[in-house]
Each structure stands twice: as C-alpha cells, then as structure tokens.
Design a protein around this nucleic acid. Structure first.
Length: 876
RNA sequence: GGGCGAGUAGCUCAGUUGGGAGAGCAUCCGGCUUACAUCCGGAAGGUCGCAGGUUCGAGUCCUGUCUUGCCCA
C-alpha cells in the first residue's frame, strides 16, 4: 500500500469507521466463557443536540477505555443511546413553531408530540454520526432512546413501585416555576446568580396606630402577603406580636407573628410573609397556619388575586405597585441592592417560587443507601475528591419534584376518577380495571396531564438499556457496569440518582468506578456557551486537525483540576504527532517492501537491546496508566517513546544498517512499528487502523488485536551505559558544531580519552553510526589522550572528548563555556557534600538513598575535576 | 456564609508512596541530511504565590495568608 507523504485524516477516518462497522467489531456477546465482561453505558446525549467539547472529551475517554479493554481480551460492551431531553427538545421545536407563527397550544398536544417525533426522526441521528466521526466504538446494535417502549415501561414500572412504597407522592408545595417554560423545575434545574435590584422600604399601617416599615426586594409580592413576621426576641417589635397591620393598597388585615427565621439584621428587621411565593415565608405560613395567596399565573402575569394589577406582567406589575405605593405615601425609600435570583437552566428566565400541586419523590431513604455504597467502597470516584461533594449533597437532599407541565416526555402513569381519586398503574387498562373495582362500574378516567422530569428516565439508564424490567442476558452479563465517565456538572442530576435507583431496584450498585472529567473552558477561562459565542465545535476541529488529534488533545486534558482551557496547543501537537507516526510507518514499510520479518532471536547491538527494553518499559507504563485512568500520562509516555526513543534515536541509528542490508535491524524496526501501532490504538484508532491495514497483519483489524504485554528482558546495565555514552558522544560533537559554527559537511577530528577496549567498546564498533548523526568525524581513542592545542572540550561522565579547532575556536568563549559548566557542577557537588556531611542524614535516611547520594558525589567530583583540568589546560 | 479547584520557564500545563526541577509551544542560533520543514540539530529561560511548621530532607505533608475560578446556600 502506498502511503502519502503527509497524514491525511479525511482520507482514512470515514473509510475505517465503515470498515469497523462492516466487520461488526464493536458488537459484544453475552455469556462468552473465559472472557471477563467490561461494560460502560454512555451518558446519553440529547437526541436533538449536537456534539460539544464536553461530549468530545467524555466520549474520547470512554472510547480509550473500551478499546483498551477490548484489546486486553475482555468482553467489552459500550451501550450507546440518546436522551429525549424534555424541556430542551420541547423548547427547540417550540422555537421552530414560533418562526412559523404558531404555538404548541394552537397545534394541540397530540399534533405537537407528533411534531417532536418528526424532529427526532430527522435530526436524532446527527449526534450518533458525530460520535462515529470521533471514532467511538459503541455497540450500535444496542442503541437505545429514553422514550423507547422498553425504557418507557421501566419508567412506569418504577413510578408505580415507588408510589406503592410511599416514596412517590403528590402534594401542594412551593416549587421553582419557570414562567417562560411554564413548568415546575427541580431544585437542580435552577441556577442562582446575583442581580442588581432594589431594596424597597414599605410602610404598613398598624391597626392600633402608627406604622411598620418593611424592607423587601420583591415589592409586587406584597399583594400576596398574609402576615408580618418579626424575631420573637427583637426588643423593637416584640410587643407587636399578636396585633395586626393593614396591607397597603389591598387593605387586608395581616397578623403579626414571631418567627426565628427572621433576620433582625436585615433591612428593618421585619418580614412581610408571602407563603405562596417565598420558601422562608412558606415555612412560616405552614407553622402559623396562614393562608396562602397565589398572585401569579403560569406565564408569570398576575392573576385576579392581584386586584387592580391583574393581567400585568411581573416587571410591569412591580413598577406599577411601586408607583402606587409612592402615590399613597407608603414608600419610604429605595436602596440599590444586589441579590441572588434563581434562573432556569434551560431558558435563563428568572424563576418564581410558586405554590402548586406536583409529584415528588421522597429521597432520604434512597439517599442513605447511596451514601453507604460509596462509604463501603463498592463505588469509587476518580479523582477521589468528588466523594465529598457527593456525600454533602446526599446528606442534605430534599425531595425531588418530578412532574413537569410539558408535553414531550413520559406521561405520568396516574389516572383520576370523576371524584379525583388517583389510580396509579403501569397501563391504562390496569388503571381502568382498578377503577371499575373501586367504583363498581365503568367510569371515565382522566390521565394526569403532566410528564416526568427527563432525569426520571435517565436515572434508570444503567439497567434500562439492558432491557430491565425484563430479565435479559445483557443484564446477567453486563450489570453492574464496570465504569462510568461523565462531567461533574451532572454529578447530582445523574450520577447520584443512578446510584439511588440502582440500589433500590437492582439491589446492586450501577457501576464500580466513576471517573469525573474536568470542564473545558475557553482560552480566557470563561465557560463555553452558545449565547456567549465562545463555544468550539468539535466537528470543526476534526475537519481541521483530524479526529485522532482531537482525541489526543482530549486525553491530555485529564489530571488538570476542575477546569481546563481549550487545548489549542495540544491539537497542533497531536496533529504533528500523527504525522510523525505516519512517517515512521512509511519509513519502515518503504524499506521493507513486502517483507514482514520476525523479531530475530540473536540481537548483538546495544541499541537494539536498548530500544526493546524501552518498548517493554513503555508498554508496562502505558498499561499501568490506563488501569489507573491516567490518560494524560499514557499519552505522554507514548509520545516520548515513539518520537524520541524510536524516531529520533533508533530510526536514525538504523539508517546506515538498513543501507548495509542488516537483517536484524529490519526485524527490530518492524517489531517496533507493529507493537507501537497496537499500543497507540486506543488513543488514535483511525491512523493505527490505516497502518495496520498496510502491515497486513492478523487479526484483520487492530481494534481486536491483543494489546502488547511487557516482556522485561534482563536489565543489561551495559546497554544503558553504551547508549548513554553514544548519545553523549553524538550530542557533544553536535554541540561543538553548533557552538563554533562548524558546517555539517566539514570533517572533524575527535580525540576521545577512553580505552577503546573498555566499557566503551560497543560504541567503538558503532563509530560509523555516530558519524552519520554528527557529520563527518574521524575518531582517535586512547586512554591517555591529551587535548591538542586549541581544542573544544566535552566532559562526559566517564570520558572526555577534544575537538581541535585551532583558528576557529575562541579560547575565552570556550573557557567561559567550561566555567559555566564547572560552576553548575560545583553547586551540585556542594549540595551533595553538605548532605553527606550531615550526621542526621546518614543516620536517618534509608540506606539506598545514602548510597545513591554517595554515588552522585563521586560522579560530581570526578566531573568537576575533569572540568577543572580542562579549564586550566585550555590555553596550552 | 460554606465547600472545592488552580497559582511551577514568556504561554499552556506535567510532576502518583517526600530524596538531584520537566514537556509542548513561543524565543534565539544552525540545517530543505531521499520517513516527516506538521521536520532535524543546538541554545537560552524557574527564590515551584507568600509566611510559618513537621522532617536528616518539602514543588510534594500540615497551618495560616494572598490572588483567581467554580459549586452550594
């Protein structure tokens, strides 16, 4: 196969993905004897969404893991799927309708839902295609969607069971209401941020004369006030408890109550109590048995309870109320005030606390088991610090509002009889049957209008994708899953809820290891978002750098803390690295032609043994890094080995031998290429598959080849010594050429002070190779060689080199160079000697550390003396 | 207010049981050496935020502090 000079990702990516799909390499089998199952469920992306950097990161890492496990011989299965994403998807389609000048209400529920299904059919595969473009080796035969019949059944089953166990209930509580989405939200779906507003001081007349000034950030909610509260120990107001005030404008009588919840320091120390529109007030209202007056409609306008302000929009109503208070002389003052306001995660509208009837899940009993599962080590977080946050949330958990006033989602499986009685059942038939039994006749049932929170289906994902509640072979083989990888932004939304659901319904943990990825931010450290226009499209990056380069960049973001800047540099580096790999393959194949030599048994040259040892060390390190999920370390290891050890040194040293027809070097080179290709595959699947095809090796795809194992040969210190000497000798000559501007073509004589029959003998046999790396050189070796006049000097650990450069070299500069080296060496030596003269160190440090320090000291001394001698003999 | 992360070379960041400070990019110098200029060779660049403490020994552990980012309330 002919390989192009440059690696062209576009030529190989789509082609090789097709090859994998046609070969069905990603399909996992159940019940395979002798294979360890390893499973991952994908965090399901929104079905109508597009790939973003978070997906690119998460799915790259999951793919690295699953490809690695597949290659080490596990029965690896990555379960893919998409999420129906209730509010998000409904909003997208509603926006579309708005463009057509219509609304979902005009369309009607059934037509609207049909419209969303159309949308899903049209765009739902886009995200899947994008995952494929990234190289994800999901088992597509197991693709699921959270609104599939099977998964919907799981949802209904769970709802009914929780209802029967008393863990699901319906009630009137204060919830977060998004007036834009016109639905209730859970606490998690609300983000708080500080907003500039005002603190309004309003005078409430007292029934027995005088008035009370109350500070509030929401003057318009006074229309729903049903009491006034003061701190029971507050000397200023204590005496008013039990008396009444009059609500301005509306003239309602408000009891004055005492409550510990009032902060005497805030404002005037008095609180207007609006139980229907504030969480604190709601609690006070419950305790004091106060009336709750809801003044809002679902769309955020004021309702008839607001009297003259009915029908006004919230902001307009606030202005109107303030104007009216001013006119009535009831407004004392307005101070600028910055305070936290909740906003809808999905549409960013300010959220209203609103009293309404919703369905809830009682979380505490579920949370207790979930805490225990992590405490006793059945689930482990990586990095470990996330466990604390997990515990904090679960320990302070509140009930989960699961009903949403949307149309797109799982309809709540509750039917109401004519008298409003609830019949909770998995199917309408069952509900009808129960109703018939209850009423002793057939009655008309009305299903609850609401749908369930999207996360109510996602929390079942690790087992619902495997067919639960049916008893399937997938469940028997792949549950619990081995590994979960996701961003910390859905630690509460998803991860902890999956643990709760799984312990509750499966009586087991959903996964054993949870890997939490960092968040990718832009190059200024800002969160990426569509509205800010600073988000990066991974698909564009794939087009520009190639999918494998993107994957390398993603793998390198791990280990960096909670956030990581957009790794532009790593993308370029990755692209360059791929080109390097490509050309290494090209070089080897170019020289081998059709030959596929085996690794020779007899290896006589030190560089061969050295590089094979490095391969073994690299293999071991990469395996360790992958087992411990240190993705960035694995990439760094592979990068250094491939680029520097193999390409810069081994391949360069191999060139003269190839020219000379040395069969051993061909065998070693081929071995290196094949093993490196396999080692790299989990990270860069596309390019390695392309190379694998060019090799023509078995198995047919590298993705099912077995991952290399380290086979540590006997550590031969003499090979390491020889390689170090070799690198020192070539490096020394290169330095001198660069330092004194000696052209690469000019021949140099190099006098080496070393015994050619000593340890350096293996290098002496390779002097030709040395010269091929440094330009023409004539070597003279002698144990007692003396530096010729006007020589540049190189002092290595065990030898010295002199390069006569009379007329070229400037002795002062050369002296300065050696002096600098000498002074560095003296510093090192000082440190070492101080340490060794410290009795405490000798007494307390471990023996091997002391031994090592002694060796260093000897080495430094020797080198210092050599440098000193060279410096003084420089002139003569 | 509580919690967490980050502060190491000009920039972006590695540095896993505490034991001679690293990479990539950028910079400077020299090379189109027939695998690769997405390349090769050479060089320069750091009191590891600050102050204490533990230790024979601290970038690494502890305490405090400053700067910065995020999450929760």
């Amino acid at each position: 196969m002919e390989l192009s000079k440059r690696y062209q990702p576009a030529d190989v990516e789509a082609k090789n993905y097709r090859f994998w799909e046609e070969g069905d390499y990603f399909r996992a089998s159940v019940g395979v004897v002798g294979k360890v199952p390893f499973s991952i469920v994908i965090p399901p992306p929104n079905v109508t969404g597009r790939l973003h950097m978070g997906h690119a990161l998460n799915n790259t890492l999951q793919d690295v893991v699953i490809r690695y496990r597949r290659m080490v011989g596990d029965e690896a299965c990555w379960f893919p799927g998409t999420d129906h994403a209730g509010i998000a998807t409904q909003n997208v389609v509603e926006k579309d309708l708005a463009k057509e000048g219509t609304t979902r209400h005009q369309l009607g529920r059934d037509a609207f839902v049909a419209r969303v299904w159309d949308w899903k059919a049209k765009y739902g595969s886009e995200i899947i295609d994008q995952l494929k473009a990234l190289g994800c080796s999901c088992d597509w035969s197991r693709l699921r969607f959270t609104l599939d019949e099977g998964l919907s059944k799981a949802v209904r089953h769970v709802f009914v069971r929780l209802y029967e166990e008393g863990l699901v209930y319906r009630g009137e509580y204060l919830v977060n209401w998004c007036p834009r989405c016109r639905t209730a939200l859970s606490d998690l779906e609300v983000g708080h941020r500080d907003v500039d507003g005002g603190l309004y001081y309003i005078r409430y007349p007292l029934e027995k004369g005088g008035c009370l000034t109350i500070a509030t950030t929401r003057p318009e909610t006074m229309l729903g006030d049903t009491a006034i509260a003061v701190h029971p120990q507050d000397q200023r107001y204590q005496h008013l408890i039990g008396t009444y005030a009059i609500l301005p404008i509306l003239g309602r009588r408000l009891p004055i109550v005492g409550s510990e919840s009032v902060d005497p320091e805030f404002g005037t120390g008095t609180l207007k109590v609006t139980p229907a529109h504030d969480p604190v007030d709601f609690e006070i209202g419950k305790k004091e048995g106060l009336e709750s007056i809801n003044i809002l409609n679902g769309d955020g306008t004021l309702n008839e309870a607001a009297g003259p302000f009915a029908g006004m929009e919230r902001e307009a109503a606030q202005r109107a109320v303030v104007e009216r208070l001013k006119a009535d002389g009831a407004l004392e003052k307005i101070e600028p005030y910055r305070h936290a306001v909740g906003h809808c995660d999905r549409c960013d509208a300010a959220v209203e606390p609103l009293l309404s009837t919703q369905w809830f899940v009682r979380m505490r009993p579920l949370a207790e088991k979930a805490i225990a599962a992590v405490k006793d080590g059945r689930i482990q977080f990586v990095p470990e610090r996330w466990t604390k946050l997990y515990f904090d949330w679960l320990e302070n958990i509140r009930d989960w509002c699961i009903s949403r006033q949307l149309w797109w989602g799982h309809r709540i499986p509750v039917w109401y009889g004519p008298d409003g009685r609830e019949f909770v059942a998995e199917t309408e038939e069952e509900a009808a049957a129960r109703a018939r039994k209850h009423y002793a006749r057939s009655v008309e049932l009305r299903q609850d209008e609401d749908v369930l929170d999207t996360w109510f289906s996602s929390w079942l994902w690790p087992f619902s994708v495997m067919g639960w509640p049916e008893k399937t072979e997938d469940l028997a083989t792949f549950f619990p899953t081995s590994f979960l990888l996701t961003g910390f932004d859905i630690l509460f939304f998803w991860v902890s809820r999956m643990v709760m659901a799984s312990l509750c319904f499966m009586d087991d943990v959903p996964f054993r290891t949870v890997y939490i990825t960092p968040l990718i931010v832009d190059d200024k450290g800002q969160k990426m978002s569509k509205s800010k226009g600073n988000s990066v499209d991974p698909i564009d990056l794939i087009g520009e750098y190639g999918a494998d380069a993107l994957r390398l960049a993603m793998a390198q973001t791990t280990g960096k803390g909670r956030t990581v800047r957009m790794p532009w540099g790593d993308l370029t580096e990755g692209r360059n690295f791929l080109n390097k790999i490509w050309n290494m393959a090209r070089f080897v194949l170019m020289n081998l032609g059709d030959e596929r030599p085996a690794l020779p048994d007899q290896i006589s040259w030190f560089e061969d043994r050295y590089i094979l040892r490095r391969l073994s060390e690299t293999t071991e390190a990469v395996r360790k890094n992958l087992e411990e999920y240190g993705f960035h370390l694995a990439v760094e290891t592979l990068y250094g080995f491939t680029w520097h050890d193999v390409c810069d040194w081994y391949v360069e040293m191999a060139k003269p031998r190839i020219a000379a027809g040395d069969p051993v070097v061909r065998g070693v080179l081929y071995h290196l290429l094949r093993e490196t290709t396999k080692l790299l595959h989990p990270f860069v699947p596309f390019i390695t598959e392309e190379i694998w095809q060019a090799l023509g090796e078995a198995p047919a795809s590298v993705c099912v080849a077995s991952y290399p194992s380290s086979s540590p040969r006997d550590p031969d210190e003499s090979d390491v010594w020889a390689m170090t000497a070799f690198q020192g000798m070539t490096g020394g000559v290169r330095s001198i050429r660069a330092e004194w501007n000696v052209p690469a073509t000019a021949e140099l004589r190099v006098v080496v002070k070393a015994d050619p029959r000593g340890p350096i003998a293996p290098v002496v046999e390779r002097l030709e190779t040395c010269a091929s790396l440094t330009g023409p050189v004539e070597y003279d070796l002698a144990p007692d060689a003396i530096a010729p006049k006007g020589s540049a000097r190189v002092v290595l650990q065990d030898l010295e080199m002199y390069v006569p450069l009379a007329g070229v070299i400037d002795l002062d500069s050369e002296a300065a160079r050696i002096k600098k080296e000498l002074s560095e060496m003296k510093t090192e030596l000082d440190r070492s000697e101080t340490k060794l003269s410290n009795e405490q160190f000798l007494k307390r440090a471990p023996e091997d550390v002391v031994e090592k320090e002694r060796a260093k000291q000897a080495e430094f001394r020797q080198k210092r003396d050599r440098l000193q001698a060279n410096l003084s003999s420089l002139g003569g």
